[in-house]
Write a protein that binds this DNA or RNA. Structure first.
Length: 739
DNA sequence: GTAGGGTTAG
């Protein structure tokens, strides 16, 4: 019977919410008579968009969108009205039965439905039934509606230890440490003795809400008050200690766990590995793992992540392979961990391969996997893979997740689809500094400086605090758009208004910004004022600006510094030589030529920026007469034949998506691209013409294309224009790439 | 008929 209620509720809640969204979203709570005292709620009362309500569904951790979240407790109010209760009762087939309501609440999928059930209970005079109230309280805690939960508890004639504990854990998990401690006291004064579970709930909640020190202190206090922390409390505290990075406290907890006999508990092992990994103790994590008695998948995952954190990427990957070979039942966390490990260490193609392998193993990605793998798609400009991830996220209702949204914005921007990025950005129900940075950076990356600056202003209007990344994007955008004075102002505001000390990249942006505007002396002053030794990017930027404005004196200063920092970089010498040549200072040209000879450096083919630029322009413009185009077209034909032979067909979703984007006349080329990208990722290595194909069609920025060209035409190259500087070696971009 | 604490992936 309860399961039938659950099915009906689920069905009913969907239609109720769909039909009633306007009313729930926009109606003023004050306009409806209140049955009980104002019942606090959140989004409706604030008039926030309905999509935000989706946050309340299901797993709170997942919905808030972060592992350890810190969200404010709701204190606004909405009324539980008799009309809602009555409407609810008219809609369902079951009677308002005190035996059924708890079951209904147990399977309740949305907060507003819980409100309706609450209203129905009040209408049917069951709101004081102990089972009903207890269920209501736990349901409200589940949805994070703490003020609702509190109000229920206050009215409960009998408050059990479970009720108190749930509320305390709920407040702690929502970041309201003060309220949880207060409740603990109230609980005591009400004559209920807290137990280990109450304490553990407090420790766990504080840890999850990011109040890491509070969590550790709670564990200490628990012990002082005579409760012996068990495996659960120790695991939570270890997790908190890892975030704080206090390894000595972690070691004490380790010792305690041994004494208390819970060291070999699987969760303690995992938490210990995690803690040592976060504290940079790579040796300890292996030892703790080796000591554990059985192969626990969580410990395996923690080990992989721990090694990854400590820059032992190859070890992490080979260990993962060993686990696969040993038949360890790896789960979605395991696969996400290894994908994240590769992405974070610049192994994008390996990450993409592992992601595909994960899918072929039948492991479905979740809302953490998607933002982990998206940067890999973004970095190799695999737009179609990115879109597939977008479609998947849409189907799985992950788009409200702030990590998923931000990663999609970043992916679309890096793949040259700035408008798509903006669409995702605008639809995000909530944003954090990462989301803003992704969008502002996306604009800056594609030269849309005005949009970048405008968005930066809106960010401030929304009272979101910019960080150092935001300013890198904004300063770079200002430099590109020639907004010199504005850039200067932001550089000052960054330090004096926002308290952010400029880093190397901010100085590089300023040197570029001033240099480009012809204020070379100011640029030089900035370099001299820097609190650290300028790197090659800084001097390179100045040298580039000197080329632009024909300033030989400063060019010589910049070049001298650059030659010391990068003695083997032929591009620097060539640039100085070009500056001399533009002034017809042939002595200077000869001097540089001699220097290059002495060092055994040659002006390699393809070394000059102009040559590269011309090639990129030809490619991007789709110049079919270019010899490389013939090779690409030929390769594409081969791939298409091969794909057809292997029985691959382009996904309908993609085609429809493209049609919607009014790219009808490009459908054929999009098809080809998909085939090429798909097969390219299956069976080819980086540096094949496939990258050009992708860049050619989908990447508005020539950055990736340059990277590609340099990877197979010359071994080392330094490319600078007035906006950016790139140093390529063996196909890798090693400096000046702040994105 | 309800109900309290668990580690690891972004």
């Amino acid at each position: 019977m309860p399961s039938l209620v659950a099915v009906e509720l689920h069905h009913w809640s969907n239609s109720f919410i769909a039909a009633d969204s306007k009313r729930w979203t926009y109606s003023s709570p004050a306009s409806t008579p209140s049955l009980s005292s104002p019942m606090p709620n959140s989004d409706e009362a604030r008039g926030e968009p309905q999509s935000r309500l989706a946050l309340r569904k299901g797993n709170i951790k997942e919905d808030i969108g972060c592992k350890k979240y810190n969200s404010k407790v709701n204190n606004s109010s909405v009324s539980i009205t008799p009309s809602i209760g009555a409407r609810f009762l008219r809609h369902v087939s079951f009677p308002p039965d005190p035996h059924l309501l708890p079951s209904a609440l147990k399977s309740c999928p949305a907060l507003r439905l819980a409100h309706a059930l609450h209203a129905a209970a009040v209408v049917a005079s069951m709101s004081l039934d102990p089972f009903v109230t207890s269920s209501l309280l736990h349901t409200y805690v589940r949805f994070g509606a703490m003020a609702n939960a509190r109000s229920v508890l206050d009215r409960m004639p009998y408050k059990s230890i479970m009720d108190w504990s749930a509320l305390i854990a709920g407040y702690a998990a929502r970041g309201d440490a003060k309220e949880s401690w207060g409740l603990l006291e109230q609980m005591r004064s009400a004559g209920v003795e807290p137990n280990v579970i109450t304490w553990n709930g407090l420790v766990s909640g504080l840890n999850r809400s990011g109040h890491t020190w509070d969590a550790v202190l709670a564990l200490v206090k628990m012990q002082v008050e005579g409760f012996l922390p068990d495996a659960i409390g120790v695991s939570c505290a270890l997790s908190a200690v890892g975030d704080v990075g206090d390894v000595s406290f972690g070691e004490q907890l380790h010792g305690y766990a041994v004494k208390a006999g819970c060291r070999l508990d699987a969760c303690v092992t995992t938490a210990l590995i995690d803690m040592y990994g976060k504290c940079g103790r790579a040796d300890e994590i292996v030892q703790v793992f080796d000591e554990s008695s059985h192969m626990d998948v969580s410990s395996c995952n923690a080990l992989v992540t721990g090694l990854s954190r400590n820059a032992q990427v190859s070890d992490a990957v080979s260990l993962f392979r060993e686990f696969v070979g040993q038949g360890v039942e790896l789960n979605v966390v395991s696969w996400t961990s290894i994908v994240a490990c590769c992405v974070q260490n610049g192994r994008d193609l390996e990450a993409v391969d592992l992601f595909r392998e994960m899918q072929s193993e039948g492991i479905e990605p979740n809302s953490v996997t998607i933002p982990c793998v998206l940067p890999a798609f973004a970095n190799v400009a695999a737009l179609m893979h990115g879109r597939a991830a977008h479609c998947f996220a849409l189907r799985k209702d992950f788009l409200h997740n702030i990590y998923v949204g931000s990663a999609l914005v970043d992916m679309y921007a890096k793949c040259g689809r700035v408008k798509d990025a903006r669409m995702i950005f605008d639809a995000m129900p909530s944003r954090n500094v990462v989301s803003w940075n992704a969008m502002i950076g996306g604009y800056a990356m594609h030269g849309e400086a005005v949009n970048a600056v405008q968005l930066f202003r809106s960010m401030q209007r929304y009272r979101h605090k910019p960080d150092q990344v935001t300013f890198t994007c904004v300063l770079s955008a200002c430099g590109q758009a020639g907004l010199t004075e504005e850039g200067r102002r932001y550089f000052n505001e960054m330090q004096h208004k926002h308290g952010i000390s400029p880093r190397m990249e901010h100085y590089a942006c300023m040197v570029t910004l001033l240099g480009r505007a012809g204020k070379l002396d100011d640029a030089y002053d900035i370099i001299n004022e820097m609190p650290f030794v300028p790197d090659g990017c800084i001097w390179g930027s100045l040298l580039g600006s000197c080329r632009l404005h024909g300033n030989v004196v400063l060019a010589e200063v910049a070049a001298e510094n650059l030659f010391q920092l990068e003695p083997e970089n032929a591009g620097n010498y060539v640039l100085l030589s070009n500056i001399y040549a533009s002034k017809r200072m042939w002595d200077g040209v000869n001097r540089v030529r001699d220097m290059m000879k002495d060092k055994g450096l040659k002006k390699e083919k393809g070394c000059s920026w102009i040559e590269i630029k011309n090639k990129v322009h030809m490619l991007l413009a789709g110049d079919t007469s270019h010899p490389m185009m013939t090779a690409i077209t030929e390769k594409l034909k081969q791939l298409t034949v091969e794909m057809t032979r292997l029985g691959f067909a382009p996904s309908t979703d993609f085609v429809l998506h493209d049609v919607e984007e009014q790219e009808k006349d490009e459908i054929l080329s999009v098809h080809s691209e998909k085939l090429a990208v798909a097969l390219g990722l299956v069976s080819t290595s980086p540096g094949t013409p496939l990258r050009v194909i992708k860049n050619l069609r989908i990447c508005g920025d020539c950055h990736e294309a340059m990277k590609f060209i340099s990877s197979f035409e010359v071994r080392e190259i330094s490319v600078r224009d007035t906006n950016r500087f790139h140093h390529f070696k063996d196909g890798k971009c090693s400096c000046g790439d702040y994105w």
